[in-house]
Write a protein that binds this DNA or RNA. Structure first.
Lengths: 108, 108
DNA sequence: TGGGAGGTACGATGCAAGTCATACCTGGGA
DNA sequence: TCCCAGGTATGACTTGCATCGTACCTCCCA
């Protein structure tokens, strides 16, 4: 059962949702950048400078969160996002490596 | 440059397209069944008994083909599909293992 | 040699995805 | 204290996806 914030439990992470979430280039970019950062690096949503309005940013982060790819925690005013590295690696070993290997497309 | 049938070259297989193709449960099922079969096992489109009309089956196979996941060759009347195992493994090592590990959902 | 089975092509349709503008809430500075 | 920056909620809009029916093509084979 997902918690109040919509985070699924480790065992509840579904491949279908994960793949659907990663089908979008913007969301893939977020995961790639998080994966490239430090182990438990937390970043605010806005630090990614996605080329979309902030309502859309919220939407994409919700999708990532509900798929089980990122964890979001309130921290005062803003909201920090961390990659659920261990959970992803446990459920789908090798997936993160595939994502980080992708060279980011030129534009966007 | 994809060939006449729409098969992308190995180096042209894009992660985005692959993930989008695999986001659909029916297409994931096709890949899973092919991966579970023999090394170069070829099956006809209709042998999968997908719960959709045949126009839709054609559509899904085209999507898989254009993403670079399957290769389709004409063989007389029907059309045999094979999984592009080596190509996928080269571009995205571990991806097939992740897909075959998924237990097929109850229905469909 | 004509059917029928296996596929494709095309148009139409319903629904979900991605996007935005706007309004709103909340916490930290100045 | 008050205002702004960071996020969320909601409704609207557009586009693309999955689906189907129908029409059509092409081999096999009875």
């Amino acid at each position: 059962m997902p918690d109040d914030e919509g985070h699924p439990d480790t065992a509840e992470i579904e491949l279908g949702r994960v793949l659907a979430a990663l089908a979008d280039p913007l969301r893939r970019r977020v995961v790639r950048e998080l994966a490239a950062g430090p182990e438990d690096g937390a970043r605010t949503c806005s630090s990614f400078a996605l080329p979309v309005g902030k309502a859309t940013v919220t939407y994409h982060f919700r999708t990532l969160r509900e798929a089980g790819l990122v964890r979001q925690v309130d921290r005062g005013n803003s909201r920090m996002a961390t990659l659920r590295r261990a959970d992803i690696e446990q459920r789908f070993p090798g997936l993160l490596a595939i994502l980080t290997a992708e060279e980011p497309p030129a534009a966007e």
